[in-house]
Design a protein around this nucleic acid. Structure first.
Length: 824
RNA sequence: GGGCGAGUGGUGGAAUUGGUAUACACGGCGGACUUAAAAUCCGUGGCAAAUUGCCGUGAGGGUUCGAGUCCCUCCUCGCCCACCA
């Protein structure tokens, strides 16, 4: 009898599998392709996080299961190694990002190979490799040529301490995530992708894809479609008119003032008429200076200033109402101006109370009691109801009134989205250079008359023609720059590299300059899944035939934190490529499931908490099988798990017992009935639970089955079935024991066991007998007894008779095969 | 403020359409084995108790023969978004 030594076993098989390239699929000829994708990691210098192991294992269990269902599973892996994360860490370490990334990916690869996942290592993607980012740049050019990439001056978030622009996701409540400094707003020329062109498609397609509901809802909310009306408020005694956007035209009669955002263009145009211009100008100046964090503060008091000397006209009742400038109205949303209805919008209400504006209720609930309450004006009523104080529209339902009032004042139906265009330029070093050349000479020679349609831009007061880098010149390689740190001048460190910046214009051949910004990391990851199958194709981003075979992705697993960013961008890019005729599908991921967050003892795992779990330690001590199975045993995969160091011992013991079972196998023994029934039940449970990613209960039922095998006479076949069921979770020990049982071939090539639904049911079942809803007895009966038989059996039971003594039966509820309840 | 989700033993968590609450594990305690320890195996929701009884799924109410599950009111926690008109 051999001792159970998981480390030795795993080394043996790992080596063998690596030599055989055991998990590679025939990418060209696979008959049943199944693309099992996991969000590729950012290779942090600290090494693989236990949370990564958790996520990857969950995906791999699914992949291995599908493999045993007869699919040719392609499970690739790669590294999302560009980006500010890596760069910041490199700066901290005083190491060049390129060197650091090389080191980190090597370490990641070493750790990933320990996990026992069926990765297609021959298809590894690395976003920082010129052979990869050549096509990221190509993608940029396609978007540019299609008119979906544009250049515009826009405010960005700027950290004065780090002296750099920050990505939106690096700004936490108005502060820099690294140094906690308050972020400022700064205007810079930027590249944007017109993702908003796809807002409706991104929204509508959600209905057709098999994704976790919460992820779909997150995307739905992020796109944030609001349907409403554009309403005009003329400025009295002028030719100007203020265009407002509202989703509640039904409350128009309650609009008692109008608010412009401080950046609104009309403020300047009305300058001559405004009597308190100095005051207004000062307010606007202050508002611009106000840091982002101040604006985001939760209970921040609203401020504003009235434009004295001018009034707007409410188009519904022709009332002259005041105009304010206030920074609670955002220039970037809607029209940058609102009609304020204090009675029915809490924000307007707060403002109205402070500045003594009238509050006129125009919508009240149908219920009169509640209606009385509303008219007391203690807070805004934002619900639906019937109209009052609205002239000819009184009594109408607010829903109907929307359209009627909207039409009455000749408003224009209008739609707005929360989704904004995707800002993709970064003034940093560690990313793919944006493949654009600016030529001053070409701009000078552009025919003034033909200005339309020719793309040009202004950089530091000089006009340039904008040229895409010719595709034959791709990739625009990121030079190895010694001083790669951000300089804080609003430009990338690449701007200081003359050899990079100065270039011959591809059109006129004269001296020109390159765009020095790099693109957002999210662009790298927005298309990587298209590259995996075609990683060895040099002449194009992907091979059409391979693409047809493997894409779209069959199953995608990743973190909920990417619900809006990455997943939205990937969908947008796919839709765009589809419209270009480059892809046959619009949606990249047929099925998506978000895994939960792994925590430790109730707390988030983080360096600052000092509760880091080092996966290497556990791999080396217990082996990958145990780590994998323990992680999956914690809780439902989509819910997340709570890691405890001690808990892993239970799974270790379990495998010790599985091992022991094989060691003391009695070849002569026969299966008894209990084992047979339990076997079919277990197959059913494990299969169903793996399908719905409830790995924890799948494992629990295998533990139960193991206990049954220990307690009952069983055969080698029974053990073999258990091993097969365990394979997706524990690929090493199952293979080893398969070999020890003297079986041909590999456990991994076995067909997934099938269960007989009849045998998965017990023949004799225990039925509880309740009296007045309390369990008083249990009776053993055959399955399938009729109501009458069951009632008879229950009434005949000794315990039941005892409890019933001297009582009168009022009613008996009998649910066959379930329960008997006697009411007395 | 908005959206989403969750509250079950000391802990992680189980529980088809409403049908024996706490499966499977961890830890603690007790026991077996051992010279002893480790490992292994068995028992263990709480309170009282000879057999047994009562109480128990965040709180309160309701529907039902029967509620962790359905309905209403409330409380707490987590995540995401946030002055989006």
């Amino acid at each position: 009898m051999e001792d159970f030594n998981p480390i030795k076993i795993e080394e043996k098989w790992r080596k063998k599998w690596e030599e055989e390239k055991r998990w590679e699929v025939d990418i060209e000829n696979a008959e049943n392709p199944y693309y099992n994708l996991m969000m590729f990691p950012y290779p942090s210098a600290e090494g693989l996080h236990i949370g990564n192991v958790y996520a990857f294992t969950g995906s791999d269990v699914h992949g291995r299961y599908m493999r045993m269902q007869g699919y040719d599973v392609f499970e690739p892996i790669g590294f999302d190694a560009f980006g500010i994360h890596s760069e910041n860490f490199a700066i901290k370490q005083g190491m060049h990002p390129r060197d650091l990334i090389k080191k980190s990916t090597d370490n990641f690869r070493r750790q990933l190979k320990k996990t026992g996942n069926i990765y297609a290592w021959d298809h590894e993607v690395n976003t920082t490799h010129p052979k990869y980012y050549k096509w990221t740049q190509w993608l940029f050019l396609q978007l540019y040529k299609a008119g979906l990439a544009y250049h515009k001056e826009a405010p960005v978030q700027w950290c004065p301490s780090c002296m750099t622009v920050l990505a939106n996701e690096q700004v936490i409540q108005g502060k820099c995530e690294r140094c906690d400094s308050v972020v400022e707003s700064k205007k810079l020329r930027q590249w944007f992708f017109k993702i908003t062109d796809y807002a409706d498609k991104l929204l509508d397609n959600l209905q057709e894809i098999d994704w976790s509901e919460r992820t779909k809802i997150a995307q739905h909310n992020w796109i944030g479609k609001s349907i409403g009306y554009k309403l005009e408020f003329p400025v009295s005694k002028t030719d100007f008119s203020i265009t407002t956007f509202t989703t509640r035209p039904d409350t128009l009669f309650g609009a008692t003032y109008v608010v412009l955002s401080p950046e609104h263009h009309l403020v300047d145009q009305l300058k001559d008429k405004i009597e308190n211009w100095d005051e207004v100008a000062k307010y606007i100046e202050d508002a611009k200076k106000k840091p982002q964090s101040e604006k985001l503060k939760e209970d921040r008091e609203k401020t504003g200033v009235q434009l004295k000397g001018v009034n707007a006209v409410n188009p519904a009742n022709k009332d002259e109402i005041p105009i304010f400038v206030a920074d609670y109205v955002l220039v970037e949303y809607g029209t940058g101006a609102i009609m304020a209805v204090p009675a029915h919008d809490q924000r307007d209400f707060d403002f109205a109370v402070k500045y003594h504006m009238p509050i006129r209720p125009v919508v009240v609930p149908e219920n009169d009691e509640q209606a009385k309450e509303i008219t007391k004006n203690t807070q805004a009523y934002e619900g639906q109801g019937k109209l009052i104080n609205s002239g000819p529209f009184d009594g109408l339902n607010s829903e109907e009134a929307k359209e009627k009032i909207g039409e009455h004042v000749e408003g224009e139906q209008d739609v707005h989205y929360h989704l904004r265009d995707w800002l993709i330029s970064r003034q940093r070093y560690w990313g793919p250079p944006i493949p654009i050349i600016f030529c001053e000479n070409c701009r000078k020679n552009q025919n003034e008359d033909a200005e339309e349609g020719i793309d040009w831009t202004t950089i530091e007061d000089t006009e340039y023609a904008v040229h895409p880098v010719p595709e034959k010149d791709l990739p625009v390689e990121l030079p190895y720059v010694e001083d790669y740190k951000p300089k804080g001048k609003g430009t990338s460190p690449l701007a200081a590299v003359d050899e990079f910046v100065n270039v011959k214009c591809p059109e006129c051949g004269e001296g020109a300059i390159r765009e020095t910004d790099v693109s957002d990391t999210f662009l790298d990851s927005a298309w990587y899944f298209l590259r995996y199958p075609s990683i060895n194709v040099e002449s194009k981003p992907w091979d059409g035939k391979l693409n047809d075979k493997w894409l779209p992705v069959d199953a995608y697993i990743g973190g909920q934190e990417h619900a809006v960013l990455h997943l939205m961008y990937a969908r947008f890019i796919t839709m765009f490529l589809h419209d270009q005729g480059a892809l046959k599908f619009e949606e990249p991921f047929k099925k998506f499931r978000a895994h939960g967050l792994l925590i430790k003892e109730g707390a988030k795992i983080s360096k600052s908490r000092g509760n880091i779990v080092n996966p290497d330690e556990f791999f080396d001590h217990f082996g990958a099988d145990t780590v994998r199975t323990y992680l999956m045993f914690l809780s439902p995969f989509e819910q997340g798990g709570d890691w405890r160091d001690e808990g892993i011992r239970g799974v270790h013991r379990f495998f010790g017992r599985v091992w022991g079972l094989v060691q003391k196998l009695d070849e002569e023994a026969k299966t008894n009935e209990t084992v047979e029934q339990e076997l079919h039940k277990t197959i059913k449970k494990v299969t169903e639970d793996i399908e719905r990613l409830h790995y924890n209960t799948a494992i629990a039922s295998m533990m139960t089955f193991l206990n049954t095998l220990y307690d009952n006479s069983h055969t080698k076949e029974d053990i073999k079935t258990l091993l097969i069921l365990l394979t997706p979770f524990a690929p090493f020990i199952t293979e080893e024991l398969w070999e020890q049982l003297g079986e041909e071939g590999s456990v991994h090539d076995q067909e997934w066991p099938k269960f007989d639904p009849e045998k998965a049911k017990d023949d004799v079942i225990t039925i509880p007998v309740q009296i007045n809803g309390k369990v008083r007895a249990e009776i053993e009966v055959e399955r399938g007894l009729s109501k009458e038989e069951l009632e008879k059996a229950a009434m005949g039971d000794e315990k039941v008779k005892e409890s019933m003594e001297g009582k009168e039966v009022k009613k008996i509820i009998v649910v066959p095969d379930k329960i008997v309840n006697i009411v007395v």
